[in-house]
């Protein structure tokens, strides 16, 4: 217990002092996760909207697939990305394995289905209400999707935050494809796993506190988005 208490004190000191290694790990984590979430939104939101609006054969199967992919096990994604990026894999020539880019790829694969599925749900609900109006106006497909995405913007912000929460807390995939190399691919979650196993509790605890704070921040942001949506009459 004494160990724990002193580790906690050292952890707080790490956070307050702005230790460069500590900050490097936090910075890389945020960089990788935010990049992955951004790409997921750019891909997943229009895709989700299209699934909500378009009628084509196989659409139902795609919707089920995306909903199922929301629960993808991160280690499996890590393994598949590893196989693709390893030297003998189809994308081995790119030399991306054990780089932050590989971690971004793995997290993007994890987060895109979440963003797409949540977007589809929000846009489908809205489309049920807007469909006749937009058709009577003579809106084309692009105008329709643009209108729905903009009017679902509060739900979409929540979807992006859900994706961010998933990516920032994820450890299995980035461990496999990043390799947890110090100063290169070591992020908060992988460092916590490593340092805890080595008995270095201070750094692990310090990073744990930052992760918790980020998680709290994301949840506060979700709540803020909801409150704002209700305030401007979106509810």
């Amino acid at each position: 217990m004494n160990d724990g208490a002193s580790a906690f004190a050292t952890a707080l000191a790490l956070i307050v002092s702005g230790d460069p290694e500590f900050l490097g790990i936090v910075g890389l984590s945020l960089g990788v996760t935010l990049t992955a979430v951004l790409i997921s939104c750019v891909v997943g939101m229009p895709l989700g909207a299209l699934l909500a609006v378009a009628r084509f054969p196989g659409r139902g199967a795609l919707v089920v697939a995306f909903n199922a992919l929301m629960g993808l096990p991160p280690v499996v994604v890590g393994l598949l990305v590893y196989l693709a990026l390893s030297r003998s894999g189809p994308l081995g020539a790119l030399g991306l394995l054990y780089t932050p880019a590989a971690m971004v790829i793995a997290q993007t694969i994890l987060v895109t289905p979440i963003v797409a599925a949540l977007t589809r749900q929000a846009v489908a609900d809205l489309n049920a209400e807007y469909d006749e109006y937009l058709r009577a106006l003579g809106a084309d497909r692009v105008e329709t999707i643009g209108t729905l995405l903009w009017d679902a913007r509060f739900s979409l912000a929540t979807a992006a935050l859900a994706g961010f929460g998933r990516a920032s807390a994820e450890v299995g995939a980035v461990m496999i494809v990043g390799g947890n190399i110090a100063h290169v691919t070591r992020v908060m979650t992988t460092t916590i796993a490593l340092e805890t196993s080595r008995g270095e509790l201070a750094l692990a605890l310090g990073l744990g506190i930052v992760l918790l704070a980020i998680s709290l921040g994301v949840n506060a942001a979700v709540m803020g988005v909801r409150t704002q949506a209700e305030r401007v009459g979106h509810a």
């Binding site: 106006l137 003579g138 809106a139 009017d151």
Partner: peptide, 21 residues
């Protein structure tokens, strides 16, 4: 429509949208 379908935008924003379409 009997029950107007209003976009989740301002009053002016609803008109702007229709003008754009």
């Amino acid at each position: 429509f009997q029950r107007p379908v209003l976009l989740r935008r301002s009053t002016a924003g609803n008109i702007d949208h229709a003008l754009a379409i």
